[in-house]
């Protein structure tokens, strides 16, 4: 019965890379320091890919996803950081009748381990392993795309990151992760997917591989970088022509972006962060433009260290 609004997805994935800036970068918080703050993200798209077909849809217009995310990174040791993130998400369609959604989304907790470091006068080389875990903190529905808050899957990922920097401040960072995703549950007793009718409310979620490369400059409290990001969903099918998007669709994208972070001279320990990204290519996702801005503050629980040590680390 229903009208058509063949839609699309899922800008929350758009925020992932911004969250990931601490999960997939080449920096550590020193022992007994906490960097914490709030990040605001504004993600918007009008065009989207229905499978591989790029289109617009007058029944949804522009989809805007805003999120306010708390984030914290704490140095357990100089070599091991724990990172946590928790976003509050709000979605809205500019046209049509579909209801906005808002609420707390998924908590992410990650352990980041700097297992290799080599520093000479000319360069620094580091490698990191990151284990991340995320799970929904509320029972939001994943079955109202593109307005769902997220995909409601519990995930675990293993990430490897390499960082190479010249002593003058130029750096390159590359990171890749494999993410396992748990099945999700719908509110309905059946669904059609990949040519079959499933008489169950449970949906198998394909796993995900993503990688990113950043080049940038970091010195004197300033970090500026250009980012390239790619996500591939390892399975799932395309949205059929005029069908609704579905939680297990093959959601792929390539994004380009830039990030800047600056530790203010005063007050010491306060940093501003801003980022932008744009979806260059995608499949079963919206072509989003994402803006992010936030404030991060560094607390030092150790007597003999200063914030300059922190941001020069």
């Amino acid at each position: 019965m229903k009208r058509i609004f063949t839609i699309l997805l899922l800008s929350c994935l758009g925020c992932l890379h911004l969250q990931a800036q601490t999960i997939n970068d080449g920096f550590m918080m020193p022992k007994k320091t906490l960097c914490t703050g709030l990040l605001y993200t504004h993600d918007q798209w009008t065009k989207y890919w229905e499978g591989t077909l790029k289109r617009e849809n007058g029944n949804i217009g522009t989809i805007t996803t805003q999120s306010l995310m708390w984030m914290g990174t704490y140095g357990i040791t100089d070599k091991l950081n724990v990172i946590a993130m928790l976003p509050y998400v709000k979605t809205k369609a500019s046209m049509g009748t579909l209801h906005s959604m808002e609420g707390i989304q998924d908590i992410t907790v990650a352990l980041k381990y700097n297992f290799f470091s080599h520093k000479t006068e000319k360069f620094t080389l580091r490698f990191f392993g990151v284990g991340a875990f995320s799970t929904p903190l509320t029972d939001y529905t994943p079955d109202f795309l593109p307005l769902s808050l997220g995909l409601a899957s519990t995930t675990g990922s293993a990430r490897l990151t390499g960082y190479f920097a010249l002593s003058k401040g130029w750096f390159i960072n590359a990171s890749g992760a494999y993410t396992l995703r748990s099945n999700v549950t719908l509110d309905r007793p059946s669904y059609y997917d990949d040519g079959k009718l499933y008489n169950t409310d449970e949906v198998k979620m394909p796993n995900v591989f993503d990688y990113s490369v950043s080049i940038g400059y970091r010195a004197h409290g300033l970090q500026a970088q250009l980012d390239f990001m790619r996500q591939n969903t390892l399975g799932g099918v395309d949205i059929r022509r005029q069908d609704m998007p579905f939680v297990s669709n093959r959601m792929n994208y390539t994004k380009g972006g830039a990030l800047i972070m600056y530790y203010l001279p005063q007050p010491r320990g306060l940093a501003v962060r801003g980022a932008v990204s744009y979806t260059l290519d995608g499949r079963n996702v919206g072509q989003s433009t994402t803006l992010m801005g936030g404030l991060m503050y560094t607390f030092i629980f150790k007597k003999n260290e200063t914030t300059s040590d922190v941001y020069e680390n």
């Binding site: 019965m1 229903k2 009208r3 529905t141 509110d187 309905r188 059946s190």
Partner: peptide
């Protein structure tokens, strides 16, 4: 909303 979606039986169902 769960009741809505349980019985929606819309497009593609």
């Amino acid at each position: 909303l769960a009741i809505v979606h349980k019985w929606a039986d819309g497009v593609g169902t």
